[in-house]
Design a protein around this nucleic acid. Structure first.
Ligand SMILES: [Zn+2]
Ligand SMILES: [Zn+2]
Ligand SMILES: [Zn+2]
Ligand SMILES: [Zn+2]
Lengths: 149, 149
DNA sequence: TAGTGTAATGAGACACTTTAACAATAATTA
DNA sequence: TAATTATTGTTAAAGTGTCTCATTACACTA
């Protein structure tokens, strides 16, 4: 059974909101969904320019909140003065473990989340929309390097 | 038995690093440790000015990474275009549940963290330095309000 | 005490990210 | 067709955080 494509999802979302599906938006989304890498606005913009796609940065900035509200992408972390995103639709939810020294990122699943979610719902009465577990540490390589110094 | 004060901790840290303990730094730290509220640089700066303490913003910005490295404060979340911090020394580690509508924040303990930490150490070989679990959702009041619309 | 080197400060300039304003354009609706 | 609305690129603006620099404070030595 085929799952809906991200473009279909997005078109439905726009329709519901009375917004328009434009070539610019299509190009940006296609670029985002090309890889599962984490991305930021500037590198996405440069990547598109290198391919000859002429999209203004403002259009990317304007599209991002829509994609987030449509449930297609998510903020992952703020680093080096700007936000980093990744697409989530069609991917297992996961958490991030980052090396504070070399900035390497490992992804892992949190088996306890369903329990946590249940607990939070019961204790606080919140309707949970999303969660983010971000762990920092020193990767084995950097740990080794530090030991030698 | 008395626990070391945050100023003592900080002085030790500075000594170890060959840095200096100045009146400006003392004033900033005292202000931060006055309440457990989450804070950001700008409001801390204004709060100090209102009390007649003349500290430059640059000094606050320069102090923050030191306090983080000394284990006294921590980044909690990035919102409204800037980072928010809170002091952690002498406080139970906790996670944050935020209402996406009214921005209210609930704090809670994560009982699963010790298991998670163990798992991450074993699986990835990282030395974990800190973790941040941030949950978003709709608080009961905002849920009710939304229902009526 | 005087001299030297290092660190810290405040002020302002700067770089950078993100948002807003605007006029022009494209799509939609009446 | 005309009117309305959404979208775009460009440019300007806002805002955050960093850097530079001249000056000051401190620690150490001669
Ligand atoms: Zn590393
Ligand atoms: Zn990821
Ligand atoms: Zn709320
Ligand atoms: Zn807190």
């Amino acid at each position: 059974m085929n799952q809906e494509s991200e473009l279909q999802i997005f078109r439905k979302y726009l329709q519901k909101k009375g917004l328009r599906y434009t070539p610019e938006r299509e190009q940006i989304i296609k670029e985002i969904f090309l890889t599962h890498d984490h991305f930021d606005v500037d590198t996405l913009y440069l990547r598109m320019r290198q391919k000859g796609l002429q999209i203004s940065k403002a259009s990317i900035y304007r599209l991002i909140p829509l994609l987030i509200e449509a449930g297609l992408i998510e903020e992952v972390f703020f680093e080096d003065g700007h936000m980093h995103y990744e697409y989530i639709y069609g991917h297992e939810p996961h958490c991030h473990l980052r090396c504070i020294s070399c900035k390497r990122i490992e992804e892992f699943r949190d088996p306890h989340w369903p329990d946590m979610e249940k607990m939070l719902k019961e204790k606080f009465g919140y309707e949970i929309t999303n969660y983010k577990l971000e762990v920092q540490g020193l990767c084995p390589a950097c740990k080794e390097k530090q030991k030698k110094e």
